[in-house]
Each structure stands twice: as C-alpha cells, then as structure tokens.
Simulated assay, not measured.
Amino acid sequence: MEYQFSNAGLNSREQSFKVDGKSVVLEERAFKLLAYLIDTHPKVCTQDELVAYLWPDSVVSPWSLPRLISDTRSLLRRFGVQHDLIFTVRGQGYKFNPEVTIQCSHNVDAAEVQLAMLKAEHSSDGAHLKFWIGVTLVMCCACIWLIINHAVVHEQDISFKVSEPIDAKGRILWVDDNPKNNIKEQGYFLKQKIGVYNTASTQEALLLLSMYEYTVVISDMGRNGEPLAGLKLLRAMRAAGDETPFYVYTWVESKKQQEVIVSAGGQGVATKKQALYDYVLLHFDDEKI
C-alpha cells in the first residue's frame, strides 16, 4: 500500500519513505510507527498498543515510546516534511495528524488480476486452465520475492543492534566491526542503566548521529582494514559540529595515540575496561541527567 500526505509518501510494500519525491532513510522502528498510525487512522492508538506492536515480547522503558516519537518528529523536520505527522491526544495516546490528508494508491496488480479473471470466464476450458496456472506462478513468484526481501532487510539490520534497559540514563553509540569483543563492557553499562547502540561502520555511525542524540560515542581505532577509522570518524563528527564526547577503546597502549585523539577533539583513549568505565561514567552523573 502506498500513501501520500503533506509533501511526503510512504510505501509499506517497498518499505520506502519519500519527501518531495526524494527517498530518505527512516530507522526501522520509526517507519513501523508511521505506517501503523497511518493504517489505523483516524483511530487513537494507546501507548500500550504501540509498545506491544513496536517492541513485541520485550520489556522496555516507559520512556522508550515518547523518545521514539520525539526522535521521529525531529528526523521528519530535518528531512523537510511540512507538517507534524504525529498528533498527541493527551491522556489517550497518539494518532496520525487529522489535519493532514491521506491519499491511498492501491497497486494495479489486483485490478489486472480481476480483469484477467473476467476474461477467463468467457474463454475456453483450455484458456481457463492457462489463466489459473499463470495466477499460481505469479503467487509463487510473489512469495519468493517476499522471502528474499525479508532476508535482505534482516541482513541489513545485523550491523546495527540496540539494547536499552528500563529507565535508561542515556545512550552510548558503540562503533566497532567486532562487537562481540565488547560484550562484557556493554553488559556493564547496561547494568548501570545505560543504553548501548552498536554499529559497525563510520558511514552508519554518522547517519545515526545526525538522526538521534547520544551521550557518548565509543569507537575502535581500526576496522574493516582501515587503521585510522576511529580518528576519521572523530574528525568527521567535529567537522559537522557534533561535540558528543568521544573515546577510542583499543588494546594498543600509545601515548602518541592519546595525543592525536585529544588534539582532534576527542576525550581520550582507553585500553583497559576499568579506564573505559571511569571515563564514560563521568558523562552519566545523575545530576546531569
């Protein structure tokens, strides 16, 4: 199903979102939120209903949904959407903005199939049989496409993993192409009620930083065959005006490396778990949250 509203459009079948005819990238959960509010329009969706849909079989913080809605609104404004698409109904929940007109564009495939069926009714038995064979083949192809599409989407999501405890104090964006190396450290931060968001590439990290707010960024120094990937990420952040505290977590201890990171605008380099904990927790002082 394709929907047109304001100066934007959402295609639930293709999982795409466009503003002024140009495709933009929405985080999966933000896309699902918008699609659900549009599908249920003009109904008011309660917080419990949305949480159950967006975080199935999960226990999340009471602030997870308001934070997602706030982030989505901010992102849509950044993309140039002319209206606030999410309407808050105090004491009840949320719904798609009733002042924004929605236009539905149904796929013509259904009409074509119906036309073919009408033609088949007036054809010979042989033609009728050919028609149903054709319909069966089309359905099989559609199923294969859905399976492949789901696999591709799932593969794309592997690089970005999210973990956020109840009553999270803030967020860490952790950039490392081998996130399994940091399981113990991330587990420690989760116990401190700090959300940890993993990504494996500089490009994706910069995109996430442009869309959401993080309290601290932790990065490895080298990844994917690029020995200075961490330093390049830091420089790109500072060049974009992003002053989020930045730490490099690596196993190589070097005074020169520390000097380079600090001179580029970073906060420091840690080579041991305890040093990393001490650095990062400074930015999660309860008085600052």
Score class of each variant (00 low, 15 high):
His83Val: 03
Thr271Ser: 14
Gly126Thr: 13
Val24Lys: 07
Gln274Cys: 05
Asn11Tyr: 03
Val81Gly: 10
Ile133Thr: 12
Val262Phe: 11
Ile148Trp: 15
Lys191Gly: 13
Lys272His: 13
Arg77Gly: 15
Lys288His: 00
Lys273Ile: 05
Asn97Arg: 00
Lys256Met: 01
Phe17Gln: 03
His150Met: 10
Asn7Tyr: 13
Asn7Ala: 15
Ser210Val: 04
Pro245Asp: 02
Ala52Val: 10
Gly268Asn: 09
Leu231Ala: 12
Pro165Glu: 14
Arg171His: 10
Ser124Arg: 00
Trp251Glu: 07
Ile133Cys: 09
Asp125Ala: 12
Phe87His: 14
Ile144Val: 15
Leu118Phe: 05
Val59Glu: 15
Leu85Val: 10
Asp278Met: 08
Glu2Val: 01
Asp177Phe: 06
Ile194His: 07
Thr202Gln: 07
Pro42Asp: 08
Val24Met: 05
Leu206Tyr: 10
His283Val: 00
Gly80Gln: 08
Ile148Pro: 08
Ile86Ser: 08
Ala30Thr: 02
Phe87Ile: 00
His41Ala: 14
Ile183Ala: 11
Leu233Gln: 02
Ser105Phe: 06
Glu164His: 08
Met237Tyr: 02
Gln267Gly: 13
Ser210Asn: 13
Ser263Lys: 08
Ser58Val: 07
Leu115Phe: 06
Phe284Asp: 04
Glu259His: 01
Pro42Lys: 02
Lys193Leu: 06
Ala142Asp: 14
Val248Arg: 04
Asp177Ala: 05
Ser70Gln: 11
Leu54Phe: 15
Gln258Asn: 02
Met117Ile: 04
Val108Asn: 04
Val113Cys: 04
Ile69Arg: 11
Val51Ala: 07
Val51Pro: 06
Gly93Leu: 02
Gln186His: 09
Ser124Trp: 09
Glu2Met: 06
Gly222Gln: 06
Lys255Trp: 00
His154Arg: 14
Ile183Arg: 10
Ser163Asn: 14
His106Phe: 12
Asn11Gln: 05
Ala229Cys: 00
Lys32Arg: 11
Leu33His: 01
Ile133Lys: 14
